[in-house]
Design a protein around this nucleic acid. Structure first.
Lengths: 242, 242
DNA sequence: GAGTGGTCTAGACCACCTG
DNA sequence: AGGTGGTCTAGACCACTCG
C-alpha cells in the first residue's frame, strides 16, 4: 500500500510547519520548486498544498506564494482529527486517562444519532476517557465503535493511546470526515465531578459521527468540553473565485 | 470577470442538492458524464466535486459514485458562509433584525483579536444584529468591518440584508475563510434580555476573524448563539488515502 | 519582465465496485 | 467486463505581485 505523492508532500510540509521550520508569515517554496524537488507535476503539488490550505496551516496569495499561518492559543478540536493527532505535537502537555476499560455492550436506547438496522443488531465497544491539558481536565469523551469490525479493541491497549491510530494501524480503518452538533449546556452532577467544575459552569457538548473509508461504518462520540482555559478553535479556507 | 468552469458546475450542483432535485442517497452523474455535459475535463469536474465534498453536501465512493448527503435538523453555522448564505435556502424561516444602524466608531480597547497597526489607525463600521429562526431569537451578532475599504456601508441598506453579499457586490470583497474560537458562557444581563433567556442559561460564544481576498483585510464578529432549539452543526470530509 | 499561483486540456494507468 | 473514482503526467495560457 504505497503512499501517493501528494500525501508524502503534504505530511512533509505539515511536519515542517508544526515543528517550526517554517514560521508564521514565511513563504513555502513555490509550486514549481516543489515540483522539481519531488519530481512531480504541479497538479500533484497543488493537491498537497490545498489540503494544508483547508486545514488552515497555510494561505495562498496569487502572484506571491504560500504563506504559513500560525494557530493561536486555543484547541483546534473542531476538525475530525483526533485529540492525540491534533494536540500531540503542540507545546500543550496533554494526557488521557481511561475512566474504565473499553467494554462491549448494547447500544443505549435513543442513541444520539439514528443507527442503521445493521448497527443496532451488533454490540458496540464503549470508551470512557478524560482528557487533560497540563493538570486540568478539559474534556470528557464517550466513544462508541460498532462491534463486528472492531472486535479485539478491548483486548490490547490502544496504539499510542490513540483510538484513531489504532483503528488505522490494526484495522485499516481511516477516518475521512465528521458530522457534529454543538450545544451549550450545564453539566449534570457526574460530569461536573469528573471535570472538577460546578454544575452551574457551562460546557460545550458535542455529538459526533465520524465517517470512515468503509461505507456505512461510523464511529460515534459524545464530548463535554471545558472552554474556560482553552477555547475550541478551528479555521477554514477555501479556494474560491468569481 | 468570468466565472471559472468549476465554479459554475459547483453552484449548479449545489443548487440541485439544496432544492432537492438530488436527494439524500442519490448518485450524482458520474465524473465522465459531467465532463461531457459541460464540455470540460475531469480535473475541472473533480475540483467542483471536491468543494461539495468538503462542505459535506456529497461523499464519494470509489468504484461507485458521488452520493448526496443530507443535513440534519441543526444550523450549519460553523462554516465561513454567512448566516443568510447558509440558511437562506433551507426550510427554516430566518429573519434578521438590526438593533441599531451600522455606525462608524473607534475600535474597542482590548479587542478580541489582535489588530494590526494599520487597522488600529482607522475606525471600524459596527453592526449589531439579532437573528431569528421563526419567532425566536437564536443568535446575537456583533460585526466589525475596518473602515477605509468599506466606507459607504453605512450609507445604503445591505443587499438582501446580507453583509457578505454586500461586500461582494458593492466592494468586490470575497470572504475566503475564517478562524474562530468557541466558548460556553453564561450571558450577561443585556445579552440574556436580547435573546429572551435567563442569565443562567448557557450559550455558545464565538469570536471570528474572516479572511478575504484582500490580504490583511479582515472582518471580525462576536456571536452569542442559543443552542436549545437548534444545535450548531458542521461537517468535514477529506479525500485521504494511504 | 520574471516569477507566482489560478485555471484548464488531453491524455494515461490504477483500484474498486457492481453486473 | 465495464464503469467508477483515485492518482498522475506534460503541457498551456492567464492574472497577479514585485522589483
Amino acid at each position: 500500500m504505497r503512499q501517493p505523492h501528494y500525501q508524502k508532500l503534504y505530511s512533509d510540509l505539515k511536519k515542517q510547519v508544526i515543528s517550526g521550520i517554517y514560521k508564521h508569515g514565511d513563504l513555502l517554496p513555490s509550486e514549481n520548486q516543489l515540483c522539481e524537488q519531488y519530481g512531480i507535476t504541479r497538479l500533484t503539488v497543488r493537491n498537497a498544498l490545498n489540503m494544508l490550505v483547508h486545514e488552515g496551516y497555510i494561505s495562498k496569495q496569487h502572484g506571491k506564494g504560500s504563506l504559513v499561518s500560525l494557530k493561536r492559543n486555543a484547541l483546534p478540536l473542531l476538525t475530525f482529527k483526533g485529540f492525540s493527532d491534533t494536540l500531540g505535537k503542540t507545546d500543550i502537555p496533554v494526557q488521557t486517562k481511561e475512566l474504565a476499560s473499553p467494554k462491549k455492550q448494547r447500544w443505549e436506547k435513543d442513541f444520539f444519532f439514528p443507527l442503521s438496522e445493521k448497527e443496532k443488531k451488533q454490540d458496540c465497544i464503549f470508551f470512557q476517557r478524560l482528557r487533560f491539558a497540563g493538570k486540568d481536565p478539559i474534556m470528557l469523551e464517550y466513544t462508541y465503535v460498532p462491534g463486528a469490525s472492531a472486535a479485539g479493541l478491548t483486548q490490547k491497549p490502544l496504539v499510542e493511546q490513540s483510538l484513531f491510530t489504532t483503528l488505522r494501524q490494526r484495522f485499516g480503518i481511516d477516518i475521512t470526515g465528521v458530522e457534529q452538533e454543538l450545544r451549550a449546556i450545564l453539566p449534570d452532577a457526574k460530569t461536573a465531578r469528573l471535570l472538577k467544575i460546578k454544575t452551574n459552569a457551562p460546557v460545550i457538548h458535542i455529538y459526533r459521527r465520524y465517517h470512515t473509508y468503509k461505507p456505512q461504518f461510523f464511529v460515534y462520540s459524545s464530548l463535554f468540553c471545558l472552554t474556560d482555559q482553552y477555547a475550541l478553535s478551528n479555521s477554514f479556507n477555501q479556494t474560491l473565485s468569481k
